[in-house]
């Protein structure tokens, strides 16, 4: 009898998660199609398909629009999953790679790499800088956080201080090298503009390499919701669990930041919305967060492209404009939660 009850409930939850996921997937497809057709040159769906097949509009479709759509989806999904892991590790719905300073450190790394190496190296130097910045940031976060007793709120605030410091350092470097400041600012705000096929392939390979870690992290994510004493009693090392989740989150963030710049609010927004829709269990939460992240970023990019024609507004800015009110909503909800 119990097994029946279990399977019934499990199925029901599965159904809801499945529906949510399918709807999100459908919306992503719709937006992808729109993004392929709308732009400086409007194409019909037929023309897009023709272009994909190598026809008349092949250049604009394959060189410009497809990479842009693909990178929005991949990077958005990465931010979403990175946010889930970080929120799980810190047991805090307000945590995101942005809030705990990881994206700022990644940005600082990219900026320094871009300035200190010859321009010709930029293709390799900037992603390496992003990766180094994010990893160093995460290591500082974990080491300092640990010396603070590893308390979760303390860890988050250490991250905040780290982010503020990295940001100030970046601004200081901008003062030292004022000529580079303008491009840097736009990149830091996050933009999908100028995505190339190479970038898509690079990000896809990176994410494929991360995939096994993402799967392991997803399996362990639920346990992150216990307090440390319970984890120890279960024979799980809290430091290993939380540190591992943070590292996977940082790897995903680094990949995404390297391809589209800093869009930290996606990491805050997508997991939270996903949790409202399908609940907190990792097996539903992780995929739905990835889908919602991909959906938000592709939608933000589409909106940014068409809202102020002929100018483009970087997608990261659109995401921030959406993220602001959402955060306020979140705070109000948090404040109203009486236990």
């Amino acid at each position: 009898m119990n097994v029946d009850v279990m399977s019934r409930t499990t199925n029901r939850i599965d159904l809801r998660a499945l529906t949510t996921g399918l709807i999100a997937l459908g919306l992503i497809l719709v937006i992808a199609v729109l993004a392929m057709t709308i732009g400086a040159v409007t194409l019909s769906i037929g023309q897009v398909l023709d272009g994909l097949a190598g026809g008349k509009s092949a250049f604009i479709v394959t060189q410009y629009r497809v990479p842009r759509v693909a990178i929005s989806i991949l990077a958005g999904g990465s931010f979403g999953v990175a946010g889930v892991f970080l929120q799980g590790a810190l047991r805090n719905p307000l945590a995101s790679p942005d809030v705990v300073g990881i994206t700022k450190c990644a940005g600082l790394g990219a900026f320094l790499a871009g300035i200190l190496t010859p321009p010709a190296w930029a293709i390799w130097a900037v992603p390496s800088g992003v990766f180094a910045g994010a990893m160093i940031g995460a290591l500082i976060l974990l080491t300092v956080g640990r010396s603070f007793g590893g308390g979760i709120a303390a860890l988050a605030l250490v991250g905040v201080a780290l982010g503020l410091f990295a940001q100030a350092l970046m601004q200081y470097v901008m003062v030292l090298f004022p000529t580079r400041a303008d491009q840097a600012m736009i990149w830091l705000a996050g933009s999908v503009y100028g995505s190339t096929g190479t970038k898509v392939v690079a990000l896809a390979i990176w994410l494929a390499l991360c995939l096994p870690l993402v799967i392991v992290a997803s399996m362990k994510l639920d346990a992150g919701g216990f307090a440390d004493d319970t984890l120890i009693s279960l024979g799980i090392s809290p430091g290993l669990l939380r540190g591992g989740l943070i590292i996977v989150s940082v790897l995903l963030t680094a990949g995404a930041v390297a391809s589209v710049g800093s869009m930290g609010f996606l990491g805050l927004l997508a997991p939270h919305a996903a949790r409202l829709m399908v609940g907190a269990r990792a097996r539903h939460l992780v995929p739905v967060s990835a889908l919602l992240g991909a959906l938000t970023l592709s939608a933000a990019d589409l909106v940014g492209r068409i809202i102020a024609l002929p100018n483009e507004i970087p997608a990261g800015i659109v995401a921030a404009v959406i993220g602001g009110p959402y955060l306020i909503f979140l705070l109000i909800k948090e404040a109203g939660r009486h236990e």
Binding site: D229, S233, G235, I236, G279
Partner: peptide, 24 residues
Amino acid sequence: IPSRDIARALALLPQSPISPDGLT
């Protein structure tokens, strides 16, 4: 002793344990 081995011999229930949200 490895933590996992201890966890097979003794369990500790904290005073006010915290659980993941929505767990059945």
